[in-house]
Design a protein around this nucleic acid. Sequence first.
DNA 1: TTAATAGTGTCTGTTAGACAGTATGGG
DNA 2: CCCATACTGTCTAACAGACACTATTAA
Lengths: 221, 221
Amino acid sequence: MNDVICTVDVVLLTIKDNGLSVALLKRDREPYKDVLALPGGFVHVREDADARGAAMRVLKEKTGIVAPYLEQLATFSGPLRDPRGWSLSIAYYALVSFEVIGRAGHPDVQMLSVDQRLELPFDHRGIVDAAVARLRSKSQYSSLPCYLAGDTFTLPQLQRIYEALMGEPLNKVSFRRKMAEMAMLEAVEGRMEAGGAHRPAQLYRLKPALREHLAVLERGL
Amino acid sequence: MNDVICTVDVVLLTIKDNGLSVALLKRDREPYKDVLALPGGFVHVREDADARGAAMRVLKEKTGIVAPYLEQLATFSGPLRDPRGWSLSIAYYALVSFEVIGRAGHPDVQMLSVDQRLELPFDHRGIVDAAVARLRSKSQYSSLPCYLAGDTFTLPQLQRIYEALMGEPLNKVSFRRKMAEMAMLEAVEGRMEAGGAHRPAQLYRLKPALREHLAVLERGL
DNA sequence: TTAATAGTGTCTGTTAGACAGTATGGG
DNA sequence: CCCATACTGTCTAACAGACACTATTAA
């Protein structure tokens, strides 16, 4: 009655070159061997405390990354999405800064722009699209994009991330008012961003209390 | 490797007595026989086109209702939620007007206020809470609550539904401005609400084009 | 005519964005 | 000094909510 193939897939997103990129790996077995696909795998009833645990395990095994933000996206199912039979995938999306991917140093992981619209096996194209839509939607009224920044970042850097997600330039004064309204950042004393021939920007980090749950705005950006 | 119990559960919500109520049924088999629980059942690989199809089938079988709005909520999983073993439930939520439940006429279906916080078997209490939170959240900026009204309704009726969901009175002028902004309603000619010793209200219905997808607001209510 | 609710015009306080100014680094 | 970018003060336009007024029915 219940011969359902149960898997998890993870859409690992980051900001690279001012645009969203997704982590893909060449599959190491059939079906679609050697084709670029999302990191995914079977749910292991013996090891996994739940589907989220399976997603964390799969992400760690395939990319070496323990993502600070991992949220369930949706479940995709049906008889046709996997040639092996009626299958079901609980999809998660994870957000990390580009540095974290570099530090993990898995050479198999390829970061491809989501705008490139590469064809993907299974229904992975639809899963990626859903993750990007969810991220863009939540970015309009929450602190979610902070997880795409590094541990510390400046307000101009953070604004560039928001702008990349929203696809339009934002008003600087309004943006800063909103960030203050969410009350999620704390200044990192002493250290400023070096770099250009101009005034350096204040560094911030997410308040430790907000490492787990998002800050949200009454009205969007 | 994949001995996962795959089920769907449906949170059928309606507005009754100016408050949210959820449809519950006495379970007809073990575990938790005769205990009130969400309508749910196994995914049938032979019949169901996907998990959504399973949810529609289960809802129809157990309550006689074909809901105009049925959306995936989340997937709940783990070894402890079902005494039979490591299980997974893809939860959906559906919205209908109270009349539709009456017309379906299934005497086993009980509508209980979500505020009553009745204890439920499995993790059904958490599933109901998640559905209510999702509905309340989406109500702040979309036409979603219209599915809780009947086929035709007046603006005062619709405002009362929004107010029941938001838990606070809304400004009449602003509410009407927002409904106009969403451009989702069309007046039903000729017919007005009868009833009281006062001016009758204009009847509206959802525009046919919006029967499938929601209208959303740039800024919330 | 009165009571009761439907629907609308308008005023005002709040909020968001434009603009322009000051601040502070490197060259 | 100049230039570039960070940051901030302030004006204005858009928006949301309060209030009051008109409209329309039954009794």
